[in-house]
Nucleic acid binder design. Structure first.
Lengths: 296, 296
DNA sequence: GCTATTTTGTCTAAATTATGTCCATAAAGT
DNA sequence: ACTTTATGGACATAATTTAGACAAAATAGC
């Protein structure tokens, strides 16, 4: 792994400023990068990872002076055991920036804000503190006519791209259990399904994501073809479509034993059918995690 | 005798300017092309791939001075650590690999094939030699029931991600003319619109992409808000929806002077309306390029 | 509780280096 | 004629370096 990253590249990737990186180096010797012939610092991917861990640790309340000498390995363990949440974290700012960019139909700014949030917050907090609130805001704003269709479309398109980007960074062993994620016929909104796909991947599952609006027989055939161990379905809109009920029943008919996991804003409207087919209901990432663990 | 390429051909294929290519050669010795009897540079396919990798790496945050000395192999492994790429296998049939992966519902393989094709072929050839034929195959295969809905969904989802990825690598100056790309109400397929968005960006336009199925009044409002100089609409399916006709008319009513560019598989079914509102019809990338040039 | 000190992130200034772009001129293709 | 290319040099902007300053926050000492 040849060292090829410039200090600005490290700054972008780690969420620190170039000033801070140099200060930490001078004061605490957190890294000792090679130099070019002309004295420029040359960083490795490992350095980036180290700076990222250091930033997370400092944001969790550790002072940089105390942890600077720790090895990268020790930093990882430290991070796993740190529970101190820093309420000062500026998630509000990201959310506000996203909303403003969306209102202005400024795709570049929205992308910038989301991308930066993903780097600085880490994927878990990015999802729970930015993406989910943003989706809620989209929901309520759309109902109250505060958000136009165009704004919602723009947000969906950019968000989708960023979520896919986040998904690419997750690596899952190929022997892990497999889940098929989609939405049934009649359900056109896919962001919820995409979120579920990322969560499942985060929790160690191989995900086959098939987008929205998939008929029951296709779902069944796809489950067979991909040897999936479970199905994830997202129900967001509309709330009272009898087609959804019948599709759910058909899926259960075609796949009598496959666990079906259902989540989304409008699950309550289909609760009767969901219970009839013995599907699992999830309401948040934590319940999804529990459920997936029990299934694997 | 292997084929060779002029510096301008390399510039087009790699996305660099001829100035930059010569500067990189002079300053960092990134390549050492043979010369003709009259001292013109003669590049090989390998040189083109090297320049392309260098451009991608620089856009990824590496500075050219640091990576110029790396071998082509090291460049390939810089960011795509998992992918082992064989430049000798450039005759590989990407399209076939994509189709097979799609048939097997193997999202990972499809993603791998598309991503690899995008890197090796460059964006233009990737679009014209892989994406467009794949879309045509999807179309015909779907009509002939050779391809299931699940397979089509999978292909759409993965393709969309790869296209978005490709779009991110295109950089356009912010003062460039602006085009809004979407599909009108009733048109749910978005891949064509995404393709058009990429083409427009390739031809130097700032693109605001708003996804499929956008009502006419929203389109008009978005054009005003983003100060767009033109509208791009994609019509792929369905072929005979009176809603599309009325939406097109409404758009023209709301925006009497904005150029409207329309393309897609089913434009012939709406030809009368398209002519009535004085919209431009494009049939391929070349005609789009011509048209955009005349508008800017 | 209240200073004094240390820690820490941020910032400035000035010099150096990096990098994309451009020019002028000559030569070669078309 | 017009375009493309080669060469060497010039330029402007951006990035990086070092040394040090500064203010807010945390910590220590009393």
């Amino acid at each position: 792994m040849p060292p090829t990253y410039s200090i600005s590249a490290v700054a972008k990737a780690s969420g620190l400023s170039v000033h801070t990186i140099r200060a930490w180096e001078k004061r605490y010797g957190v890294t000792n990068p090679e130099r070019t012939d002309t004295n420029r610092r040359k960083y490795t991917l490992g350095d980036i990872e180290r700076f990222r861990l250091l930033r997370q640790a400092t944001e969790n309340g550790h002072s940089i002076g105390m942890i600077a000498e720790l090895s990268t390995e020790e930093l990882q363990n430290l991070d796993n055991t740190a529970e101190v949440q820093n309420p000062l974290a500026s998630n509000r700012n990201y959310l506000a920036a996203c909303l403003q960019a969306m209102m202005n139909l400024d795709a570049d700014a929205l992308e910038e804000a989301l991308s930066h949030a993903g780097i600085v917050l880490g994927i878990d907090r990015f999802l729970s503190e930015v993406v989910v609130p943003l989706l809620k805001e989209l929901d309520s704003g759309w109902e109250e006519r505060r958000i136009s269709i165009a704004q919602e479309h723009l947000a969906s398109a950019v968000l989708r791209t960023q979520l896919e980007k986040a998904r690419l960074t997750i690596q899952v062993p190929s022997h892990a259990p497999r889940i098929l994620v989609t939405t049934p016929s009649g359900q056109l909104h896919e962001i919820g399904a995409l979120l579920a796909a990322i969560s499942a991947a985060r929790h160690g599952w191989n995900v086959t994501y098939l987008g929205p609006n998939l008929p029951s027989d296709e779902i069944a055939a796809a489950v067979a073809k991909t040897h999936s161990n479970a199905i994830g379905l997202s129900l967001v809109y509309p709330a009272d479509d009898p087609l959804v009920d019948s599709e759910l029943l058909k899926i259960r008919e075609l796949l009598p034993t496959t666990p079906i996991i259902i989540g989304g804003r409008v699950i309550s409207h289909y609760r009767q059918t969901i219970q009839a087919i013995g599907a699992h209901i999830i309401t948040d990432d934590h319940s999804l995690k529990q459920l997936l663990r029990s299934l694997s």
